[in-house]
Every structure is written in C-alpha cells, then in structure tokens.
Design a protein around this nucleic acid. Sequence first.
DNA 1: AGCACGCCGACT
DNA 2: GTCGGCGTGCTC
Length: 807
Amino acid sequence: MEQVANVIVDVPAMQTNQPYSYLIPAPLKHTVELGMRVAVPFGRGNRMIQGFVVGFSEVDPTAQENVQLKMIKAVLDLKPVLNQELISLSAWLAHQAYAFQITVLQAMLPSMFRAKYKKYLRPIDEINDPEIQQLFAGRELIEYDETQFTPEQVSKLTKLQREGCLEFYYEVNNQAKAKTRLGIKSLLDFEQLEEARSGLTKAAHKQSGLLSLLQTLAPEQVVAKEQILATYDISEAVITTGAKKGWLAKVPMEIYRDPMANYDIKPSQALTLQPDQQAALTAINDAAGQAETFLLEGVTGSGKTEVYLQAMQHTLAQGRTALMLVPEIALTPQMMVRVRSRFGQQVAVLHSGLSVGERYDEWRRIERGEAKVVVGARSAVFAPLDNIGLIIMDEEHETTYKQEENPRYHARDVAMWRSQYYQAPIVLGSATPSLESRARAQKGVYQLLRMPKRINQQVMPAVEIVDMREEIKKGPESTFSEALLTALKARLARGEQSVLMLNRRGFSSFMMCRDCGYVLQCPNCDIGLTLHMDTHSMKCHYCGHEEGIPKMCPNCQSTAIRYYGTGTQKVEQELHELLPEARILRMDLDTTRKKGAHENMLTAFGAHEADILLGTQMIAKGLDFPLVTLVGVLNADTALGLPDFHAAERTFQLLTQVAGRAGRAELPGEVYVQTYNPDHYAIQLAKAHDYEQFYQQEMQLRHLAKYPPYFFTIKLQGSDLDERTAAQNMSQIGRWLKKRLPADTIFLGPTPRSIARINQRYYYQIVIKYRHQNELDQVLNELLERAQSVGRNAFQLSIDREPVSFM
DNA sequence: AGCACGCCGACT
DNA sequence: GTCGGCGTGCTC
C-alpha cells in the first residue's frame, strides 16, 4: 500500500469537481501536508496546474486502476494554507451554494494564492526550419504566448511538436510573496565586539557608535535598517563599512503592510453600559462555548457596537478569538478605528479597499495567530482564525453579505457553520433585522435581544413625509420640494450640515427622442443606456458598453433628443442653481472609484469643508457627523416599484438607516422623505420608527404571497446565444424538476429576465418556492451535473439559493 | 478550462 | 491524397 494525496485541481468545471489522486514522490513524502498547494500534471498534455491537497488515502499502486496515477510535481507552500476546518467548510459550501469546490477554495483565500500559469516551448531535437530557429535564437526555452506568433508560426510549431522535435513546458508560478525590508543582524559576540572597538582610531566616532548599538542586540535579533538610520546617528556608509569588516550581516526582514498605518488611533476603554446593553452583553457572555444564535435588535444609536466590543473583550479574555463582520468596511472606517482603538495590534482588517499585498499580510497575521480579532466584510467570514469564541455580524440584513457571483454564498450561512464547528455564539445585529432572522427569533430558534432605546436619552429624529404628487401640482417639476428647500436654506443660514440621498446611481438618466419616443439602447443588452456627464458618454450598466451622446435621434433623425430622469450629477447641477452659495460634495460610484476617495470625501465633510453631502445609498451607512441636522431622501420610492417581494423591506431598511444619520449629537435632527407613495406602510412605519409593526405587517403579506420566510426560494437562470434554445432548455428543466420535487413546491416561470438580453446572451429564469429543504439540494446538484455547460457559447445554467434580487 | 483525438471540406 | 477546420470527450 502506498499513500496518495487527494487533490482538488484548479479547473472550474462540473466534470473535474472532485479530488484526484496523486502519488507523492519520495523526497516530498514528509513535505506534503494537508491543505498545501501543489503543482500537478493534469490532462493528456500533462500541463502543470495548481491544486489543493484535501486529504490522503492508501492505495495499492499495483492495482489495475492505479497504475496510471501521476505524481505531484512540486509543493508550493512551506506550510498549509488551509486547515481541516476550512477544507470541510469548502466541501459543504460547494454543495449548498451549487458551486465547484475549487471556486469556493479560491474565494476563501487571498488572491495572491491564485496561481499564474506560464507555458514555454523547448526544442528537444534538431529543427531545420530557419524561421523557427530564429524564434529561439539559440535559447533553450521561450515563452509561448499564442498572440505573439503568426498563425503560420503556430501551425509550424504544433506540427514540430507532433513530430517530437518540440515540447511544451508548463510552469505554475506562486505569486505569494512577502514584502521585505533590509535588516541588520550582529555577527559578533561580546568579546569580538570589544576587540573590534579596540581596533578603531579615536576619530572613528560613528563606527564606535555602531558597535555600541550592535552590543545592545540579542543574538539573532534583526533590526530594520531604516529604524537604525532614523533613531541613531549612524549613516548608510557606516553600516556598509560594518558589513565589510564582518561585524554585521544585512538580512532581508519580512514586514507587514499595515492597512491602518495612516490612522491616528488612540486606545479606548470600555464604556459604561445602559441596562439594555448590559442585559444583552450578559446573555452573550453566558453563552460562551455554545453555538447559540442571538438576534440583537437595537435602534440606531442604541449602542450595539459597544456591546460587540465588550463581548469580544470577554471572548479574548478566555483565550479565544473573535470574528466581526460588517457590510463593507471600507465604507465605514469609523468601525475599524473603533475596534482597533479597543484591541490594538491584535486586530486584523479584511475588506475590498485593501491592496492585494495588504490583504495577504493581514491574512498571514491571522493565520499565524498574531491577530486575534478580525474585522471584515463578506469574505472575511473565511478568515483563518483558529479557536473562534465569538462571531458578530453587524447590520445582518444587508444584502452585501450575499455574493452575487460564484460561489453564491451568504456570509451568514458560513458564519453559522463556523459557529457550529467551534461551538461559539453568534450575534446578528441590526436596527431593522431581515424578516428571515426576525421570524426565527420569533420561533425561538434564535434568542432575541432588544435594545429599543437610544443611549443618552436622545430622541429619534422627526421624519417629515413630503407628498411629491402635491408638489407637481404647485409648479414646474423639480427634484426638490418647497419644504426640503426651505429646510436646506435654514441649515445653510445656521452653518449646519445636510445629507441628501438619491436612490440608485445614475437613476434612469436615459436619452429619449421627443418626436418618436425612441430610447437609446445598448447594442448588446436589452436595456437603455445611462447618461454620464463626467465622461460625456452613454454607458450600459450591465456590460460596460460606452458610446458618445447622440445629437440626433438614430431612429427618426430628429434633433429633439434629450435626456430624462435624475442622476446625482443632474441633482448636483440643480442644487447649484437653487443654492449657489452652498458647498456641495457629491458622492457616488463615479466619484469614489479611486482608492481612498471615499474616505477623503468623508473626512472633508467631517471637517465642514462642504455644507451638503449628496450621494447614493452608500451615504446611508454608519456615518456620524455631529453637525448634520438634516437628512433628505429625494426619491424614497424607486425601490417600491420593483417587481421584487423585498421592495418594501429594502425601502423600510434604507429609510430607517438614513434617518438615523440625523442629529446623533446635541443638535436635534430632522428628516425629509420625498415620495409619490406617502401612504405606503413601509414609508409610514419608517416615519414612526416602528420596526416591530413593520415586521408584523410584512409577515402577513409574505404569508399570503407564499414568500420567505414562509417559503425558501431558489432562482434558476439559463442563458444562451439563441433565445429559443434558452427558453426551451428552461422549460425542459422546469418539467424535469416538477417530476422530482414535492407537490407543494411552487414554480414561477420560466420567464424571460426583466432585462432579457445581456452581453448578447438571452436569459430565462425559473423561481422555485419550497417549504422543505430535504431533497432539493440533491436534485439541484444533479440538475447542475446534467446541464453542465459545454463550451463558452453553449447553454449555461446558474442556481442561486435565496437570491437577493429576483430581477 | 485546455488539450488531444477524430471526422469532414479545400487545397498541393 | 493531406492539411487543418472545429466538434466531442476526458482529465488521477
């Protein structure tokens, strides 16, 4: 019997979604460990690819089915990048998210662990063709890049390869590299130092200083060269002399790229808790060591963060680690700063704003156990923490926790799995919990902790609902109601700040011809193009297609073509005209694309460099500015019109969240909500700050319409270049599923997607509503296997569990 | 995914 | 008759 490694290979396809067995060459017998990355030959061409060792098994190497086993070529890691927990998690998640295990593994690790592949050509026999000889120019190996050669050369090369004169040589390049800096290490013991000192002339003060410094170092201690230059009166030249004389050695020193290096963080102490907070904290602390789920329902300003911090403190004190998830940390540096100020260097942060290198370094600090607390966005749920004692998920209702690409996982599901694995409590916190979570708390599956009061006796801001239908009657169409404009002017006069939110980026700024009604469309997708004033172009939000602004209608050649709708840019313009003296800061995807732009803008606004902050949804999250006393929502109902059962829930959450931005300090806050649906319950209950009432009412509707949390949902999406193929295949899939799923399963569709064509492909979808988990996973995984895509252009199927959007 | 093998049309 | 076009199927 011989040990073989079970390897998940880097080929994201249904057919290869299984471990492959590889022999371990003798010299690597003790090197290969579970969870390491390896380079293995794969396929008939034996191209070299990366794989993950997910297990070992004993096989008889002489048995018929094992004689063709190939051997691991190389080990890519010094120590494993995955442990047993993460391997088990990846297998489970692949199944439950209908994804390939390799896709899950890639999603769990920093992108630096992704392999870079290179293909080379190597002559192994005499080549007579002068053109090809010239290509090699005497070299033993040349990089093979198909785009670099003419088609004639490519065919010559493949022919030579078939004749055995040439071979392809593959390489897997590991890009995971630590950043290093030059360090200094003493080579002398005490006596040698004394000896060296006595050999110096009296004038050599600097060299003598260097020797004194070396004397203070412990054996093998490495000091950064920069640090020596900065703190001691020793120059580069003296160090070089020291190295020449053999006193010291220059050694590379691994350093971490610290994403929070530019923040001024002062240590903070635990604050005194209100009775509600204390009760919540006690409940969480008492659950230590148990996989208990808490739903912490606390209004904005009730002090949820302080409860999190003190619960984490308790966990750390017990020698366990803590994981804290936040919607998108780059948007809320304030949260990172708060955690860091409480726990210092043992905090690692993981979010999309980090550079590839910073992310890798933070990951290693966690993996090495140097960071005991992790704060991060969605993918931080895979942080390689060991011995997790507490998981916190702030703003648990946020949709950013669901990944919209493969693997389509929800961070909450992963967090629950890890909570079970480590027997650690998990806290889901929100002012407006998702209906799913709130319902589970109702049933007693989760323990409900409520904090209905704001700390410091602050009152909730007054919410004014402005009926825009009335505004239209009053006069010319404007984005701003009289009431909101008056309120804005009042803040300007008092030197206070305002925040204005516009639902959705570039919200329907489309070009329409006044004469024939033609709307400028994307040539690849069935959707109107959106006007972007900053680049003076029309863009498609789905495929990225971009073209110039037309001066003439492409349909009827009329020049009466103009744009309609409201985008942040247009609102900014309008605001400039209405309030020329106001300093306006516009924040949307277009102005914050650059790294750090978001933060800089918030800092500027915090320093009162602007009077009005105008932005999209992104400004709703966790901002705290004492001077902000007015929040305006320009169009509260854009989401209400969407054909999605989440519409009311999302609107309620958004309004509650922005309303919380007003008056969090001494100054009382006011909120203006402009809407065409002033009587809608989501808007009325947001005004009343009444989540519980909203929950009751929305649950009734969900019950009647058979939607979550009463039913589970799955969205199946099929696409094809040919519309009929897409439709037919989806119908067939629908029939196939109906035969296999319980009779109380509800099928909606297949219907064309609301935007039926994206990037030349036609989309059809089926939504399944079901009550029982049972066989569904099995049946859908089987479906995925049967409907596996054959090539890029063929029919493709994707399965999305509990989709965030039904569009 | 990417590579080899295999079966059909347009060339020397 | 062969070269090379792409469609099909397999990868420890």
